[in-house]
Simulated scan of single mutants.
Amino acid sequence: MGAFEGQRVVVTGAGGGIGAALARRFAGEGARLAVNDLDPGRTADIAAELDAVALPGDASAIAPAALEALDGTVDVYCANAGIPAGGDALAGEDAWAAAWDTNVMSHVRAVRTLLPGWLDRGHGRFVSTVSAAGLLTMIGAAPYSVTKHGALAFAEWLSLTYRHRGLDVHAICPQGVRTDMLTAAGTAGELVLAPTAIEPADVADALFEGMAKGRFLILPHPEVADYYRTRATDPERWLGSMNHLQRNWEGA
């Protein structure tokens, strides 16, 4: 029997990339799945592959439908869907609103729906695909970086508030992963992320290792811990290094 045998798991953004890898891994561990993607065709494909419930549509409002589809119980919710939302400080209102809605508020809405059941049962698990941008930042992507900081802050708040009541929270913070989102990052992604990019399955492996060890922070790229430490202890050095990357990107 798998580690999640019989548990009811929801994965948003499961049509490809990290979401598909997470869904496949949970299915391999015996979970009963509901999968979501904005693209109906991709949702149907991954659902058919894994004998899962297909829930196409906007991840920002999917939790009530997932709860109904899984007979009123969700044990694990993977808030994986995200949008890259590039742009600088002059990015328009629409870019900021879209990033905020998907990268932060979809998490808040899911928890608002599922938390009462988790607390009543004394157990539940919330997995947030944050990105290293939530711990650090990402050049050329102000809305993405800022909202990913928000996603991390929300996950941290959930963990410190409810862990003694049985809620396990995990924040996955990879750097480059070979997905459509890396391609969408354009030249900034090529400069910063592509050289150390890993496969989506590597992210799933890191999550399952972290869950087994009860870790909140999941770092598929271990070096991110060093960057985060430098950011905290020597912010001027860290900002100077990031500004150097920014100048290299502008020059390219």
Rank of each mutant, 00 (worst) to 15 (best):
A65L: 03
V74E: 02
L50I: 11
A99W: 02
V74L: 05
R42P: 07
A34E: 06
P64N: 11
S60P: 03
D58I: 07
V130W: 09
A97W: 02
R121N: 14
V108A: 08
P40D: 14
L90D: 14
G57M: 04
N36P: 09
A66L: 11
V104Q: 00
A48H: 09
L50V: 08
D94V: 03
D94C: 00
F126H: 13
A66Q: 11
T147I: 03
T73R: 15
G41K: 02
T102I: 13
T113W: 09
A63D: 12
V127W: 10
G140W: 00
F126W: 12
A89L: 14
A59M: 07
A79T: 00
T73Y: 09
G41Q: 09
P40S: 15
T147Q: 07
L67C: 15
S106Y: 01
L55Y: 15
D58T: 09
R121L: 14
G41C: 01
D45L: 14
D39Q: 06
V53A: 13
T43D: 09
G122F: 13
D101V: 11
P56W: 11
R125H: 07
G124V: 02
I83Q: 12
D120C: 00
P143V: 11
L55Q: 15
G57D: 08
A54K: 04
G124W: 02
G150Q: 11
G134F: 01
E93I: 03
A110L: 07
G41E: 13
P56R: 12
S131A: 11
D51Q: 13
W100Y: 13
A47C: 07
L90C: 06
G72Q: 09
P143C: 10
W100D: 12
G117T: 08
T129A: 08
A54T: 05
A99K: 02
A133M: 00
L70G: 14
A48K: 10
G87L: 04
L115D: 12
D94G: 00
V111P: 02
N80C: 08
A63K: 06
D58L: 07
E93D: 14
P116K: 06
G124L: 01
V127P: 06
P143N: 12
R112V: 13
T113Y: 09
A132R: 10
A99F: 02
D94M: 01
N80M: 05
A89P: 00
A61T: 13
P84N: 06
W118V: 08
A141V: 01
S131V: 09
A44E: 06
A79C: 07
D101E: 15
T137C: 11
T113E: 14
L70K: 10
V76H: 01
Y77A: 13
